[in-house]
Amino acid sequence: MTDALNAILVIVLVMNLFVLGTSRILAVINTVATQGALLGVIPLLVHTHLTISVVLTSVAAIVLKGVVIPSIMIRALRDAEIKREVEPLIGLLPSIMLGALATAFALLFAGELPLAGEHQSALLVPTSIASVLVGFIILTSRFKALSQVIGYLVLENGIFIFGMLLIDAMPLLVEMGVLLDLFVGIFVICIIVNHINRAFSSLDTRLLASLKE
């Protein structure tokens, strides 16, 4: 069980770095969608016995993160007619390096934490810290509104992984509420993206600093 879990978590880590190192927004959206769908499988693995609530959480996460949110974003991408993040604040290679540093830090830091015995061997904590940090890096270093949404999604994926530690204690309602919030958040942002695009004829968030009549 831990083996399959760790294999998935390691692939999530690899995908984080891929997201940092790619400038094509479509490829990045697809990667984050795959990442979300993979994370949806985790509740099934963390739990020893399957209950209705676990299966529901899993299915909701897979459908929402793997299908619904990416399709909304791809729609926004098509309307906005952009293909790639041309000039990130931090170049692609330096951001891969930063992400690698963050991941290494998370791996070492999580080793020092006094975790409960059953979480000691699984990589849940380091992966969640690394994903949150990578999400922050994307959020702060990209200028296009859609890339920032992707940063937000990666950040949320990290929090979702951390939530898996508490899945026994956390009621289904909280998990569903979080997913609903995420969905509404992305939905609204993608509408805003369209409006930014129409008002400024660009998705560059730096332009938002200048007021327009």
Binding site: L13, V14, L17, F18, G21, L92, L93, I96, A100, T103, A104, L107, L108, G111, L123
Partner: peptide
């Protein structure tokens, strides 16, 4: 970038093993 990423993955593997 791709090749550096390969090096990074292998070094993460080493880090996981020795930490």
């Amino acid at each position: 970038y791709l090749l550096i990423a390969a090096t990074l993955f292998c070094s993460f593997g080493f880090l996981l093993l020795v930490r």
